[in-house]
Design a protein around this nucleic acid. Sequence first.
DNA 1: CAATTTTTTGACCGAATGGACAAACGTTAG
DNA 2: CTAACGTTTGTCCATTCGGTCAAAAAATTG
Lengths: 211, 211
Amino acid sequence: MEGSTPRGRTRIQKEKREVILEAALEVFSTNGFRGSTIDQIAEAAGMSKPNLLYYFRRKEDIHETLMHRLLDTWLAPLKELDNIGDPMTELRSYIRRKLEMARDYPRESRLFANEILQGAPRIMPMLEGELKELVDEKAEVIKGWMRAGKIARTDPWHLIFSIWATTQHYADFDVQVRAVLGPDRGGDGRFEDAARFLEQLFLEGLKPKAG
Amino acid sequence: MEGSTPRGRTRIQKEKREVILEAALEVFSTNGFRGSTIDQIAEAAGMSKPNLLYYFRRKEDIHETLMHRLLDTWLAPLKELDNIGDPMTELRSYIRRKLEMARDYPRESRLFANEILQGAPRIMPMLEGELKELVDEKAEVIKGWMRAGKIARTDPWHLIFSIWATTQHYADFDVQVRAVLGPDRGGDGRFEDAARFLEQLFLEGLKPKAG
DNA sequence: CAATTTTTTGACCGAATGGACAAACGTTAG
DNA sequence: CTAACGTTTGTCCATTCGGTCAAAAAATTG
């Protein structure tokens, strides 16, 4: 007999859950959690509301599943920051990768931003646990680079914040960026321009001082 | 008694409208527009729902009034960016002022962020009009500094974006910042640390290259 | 094929929500 | 006192929304 949480998931269940999550990502990221309705998600997923609720019992279950997946993807670039390679190269790669994620996964970025903006009610423990540990660990790596005179001495935590802020800005504030740049400069090239600018800002700004 | 009610708005009306806007700022900035209810705002303002609706006919009227005021305040620092003073000093002042606004008016920042995140449905014309013009104008000022060799050559628009992103990050992503910094470093001092870091990043990153 | 299980949907429910409205309340002027 | 005006609230309404349920429709299995 099957238990309360059927581990055995049929082919249809797996597929439909994916379709729902994809639709929910679209809807949640543009309307926020409370601003989204199950009907909207169901329609975007091409099924009826009761049918959707057959796969996810509650609206919040969809959001939770989405958020849980997101975090793994989202932190992957930082995890790759390694103290093996050349510090400046490592930093440049990290900035590049984060900017690429803002370009290729803007919905995920907005979903995350929405959650944080509202006070992170559903992922607070994760921020104080997993995320803090990871950042602290990488801050140590960066501190090592500073001690070795490879990059300028500064606050590693705020350095990480500034990389997050500047790169995610191009996903979260995309409409503003495009509006300000206008039709000519606001096209696809904006990410290249941003990459060039950020690279210059961070690499020059973090050049080690003699002495 | 005559002339004591300019433009047909009594003293009580002015006062109560202020109370409501203050309450609405609190509620909207933490729950978003759709996530906020008139009842919540009314309770925060210390009055009944019908009474609130006596001062603002619709929920959206409150939001609109709030948003309109916000924009003036929000763009003031950039308007002050002047080509009279020393470029580096001007930039430092601008960064300082923006960071102070993130510290002192986080609710306003979140309200704005919420609006942009949702695609700026209510303020799009403003972004493409007033805001774009202002930024274009200031970009010219910055370009002048670059031509004069006062700061490094780079993209002025993305420079402005990066200042917006890094400073507003401390308001919009406040919970994440505090969670990552932890109880010790996440206290009131975090803004001083941020100011020090950002100053270093931008001033070093924008130092003019010889030649 | 029939039996059984999984998937889908129409109809429905209760709670929340934005908003309307008239009655009541308070204040001031005659 | 009354009349007039601005303010406040209890009550009500229509809609929306999250979620349930039973029963039909596919799909799977023996």
